[in-house]
């Protein structure tokens, strides 16, 4: 009997070595614990950095421009507006899902007035407004927009800065040749339930107000202004 017990003890030891994760012992009055770690990873989504940019004229007709690529290419836009001394020249819209920094820059030439091949320099104000909206799916995540405007030759800036709501509006006014640059990003934080999209939508209008519209010489005046729109995703 003694030999039998010795043999049994040796065999039990050999089993412990054979199965490193084994827990062995008497069941009576004992608790046997074992654990292992489940590992998982999330390597992140491959971000879609494409941005859609579109323009429409005062009649809500799409302005055909020279072309548009995903990033970093200039888009030349030209349109004419003849009418009263004030009104919207064009509207623009930009949408995307990227959380990278997006920049949209407008460069305006000086507005010129022309009648019968005679050019004038009108007194005018251009007003740019921007609206931001974005999808916010329920639960778990917070989205923050930071789409600043930085205007050269500005006469007035209303609003601006960081926006944390679901919609924000800024407006800027300027005279003469000018650039206006919107830079910012839609960032997200949070995790868990329901969060799947950071789709954002930004749109704006460009309104022209001609102060000296009332000319002494009657006729048909042609006002021309070139606008170059550029955007980039970084």
């Amino acid at each position: 009997m003694k030999k039998c017990i010795v043999l049994a003890t040796m065999l039990i030891v050999s089993m412990v070595f054979a199965f490193a994760d084994t827990h062995l012992g008497r069941t009576e009055n004992t608790v046997t614990d074992s654990s292992f770690v489940v590992q998982g990873y999330y390597k992140g989504e491959k971000e879609n950095t494409s941005v859609t940019l579109a323009f429409k004229d005062i009649d809500n007709q799409t302005i055909v421009h020279s072309g548009q690529s995903t990033t970093g290419t200039k888009v030349n836009v030209s349109d004419r507006h003849l009418g009263s001394n004030t009104g919207t020249i064009f509207t623009w819209s930009m949408t995307g899902t990227t959380t990278s920094t997006t920049t949209l820059k407008f460069t305006f030439s000086t507005l010129q007035a022309e009648m019968n091949d005679v050019f004038y320099r009108p007194t005018y104000t251009l007003k740019m407004t921007i609206n931001e909206t974005r999808n916010r799916n329920s639960g778990g995540s917070t989205l923050t927009d930071t789409f600043y405007s930085n205007v050269t030759n500005k006469t007035q800036v209303v609003g601006g800065g960081t926006t944390t709501g679901t919609k924000a509006t800024q407006s800027s006014e300027f005279t003469g040749a000018s650039t206006i640059t919107y830079t910012g990003k839609t960032s997200s934080s949070g995790y868990g339930y329901g969060y799947s999209s950071t789709t954002w939508y930004r749109s704006g209008t460009c309104t022209l107000n001609i102060a000296d519209y009332e000319q002494t010489i009657p006729g048909s005046y042609h006002y021309v202004c070139w606008v170059i729109a550029e955007y980039s995703v970084q």
């Binding site: 827990h23 614990d33 654990s35 489940v38 999330y42 969060y195």
Partner: peptide, 14 residues
């Protein structure tokens, strides 16, 4: 949604 490594412990009690 948070990029990186995750871990969880599974425990067996007998």
């Amino acid at each position: 949604s948070v990029t990186g490594q995750y871990e969880s412990v599974v425990t067996f009690t007998m």
